[in-house]
């Protein structure tokens, strides 16, 4: 397992992220997109939004997980190569927020993913929605932890 440190270094240099919106209200999704827009522009630190989970190191998850989204989210997670981690953006992804008692919600994202991968690692960024500064700070902390 001596390749892991190299991966770790590569990951810190330029983490590629894949964004999954799981039936949220899309406010967090917009704030995530805001991180990529000119004012915050995380791309200059090497953070790249990619189009496939197979290219990604970090998954950004926003919104509570609806029952219909559960399987797709778990499958998408398992397609990500190791080492992998998830940043749960917004209070809905962390703890279902306002939708806690809704009938069609399967659970917060961490519980849904742990059903298929008990080893999964998460960093929680609460807020409704968290400001772009908070999301960036969360991402930085996540990369320090890995």
């Amino acid at each position: 397992m001596h390749v892991a440190p190299i991966f770790g270094r590569a990951l810190r240099r330029s983490p590629w992220v894949f964004h999954v919106g799981t039936s949220g209200c899309n406010n967090c999704d917009i704030e995530i997109a805001d991180c990529l827009s000119p004012r915050f522009d995380v791309e200059r630190f090497g953070v790249r939004l990619v189009g496939s989970p197979r290219h990604a190191d970090v998954m950004l998850i926003s919104g509570p997980v609806s029952m219909a989204c559960r399987r797709p989210l778990q499958e998408t997670w398992l397609e990500m190569p190791r080492p992998r981690a998830a940043l749960l953006v917004g209070v809905c992804a962390c703890s279902m927020g306002a939708y806690r008692d809704a009938y069609s919600v399967a659970g917060p994202a961490d519980r849904v993913i742990r059903e298929v991968d008990p080893e999964a690692r998460f960093l929680y960024v609460p807020g409704c929605p968290p400001k772009p500064e908070t999301i960036i700070a969360g991402l930085v902390k996540l990369l320090e932890e890995i």
Partner: peptide, 18 residues
């Protein structure tokens, strides 16, 4: 709009208990 898991449920009827 309904998820597959709820196919037999009618969530807006009286008596539906979450």
């Amino acid at each position: 709009v309904k998820a597959e898991a709820m196919a037999d449920e009618l969530p807006l009827r009286r008596g539906f208990d979450v």
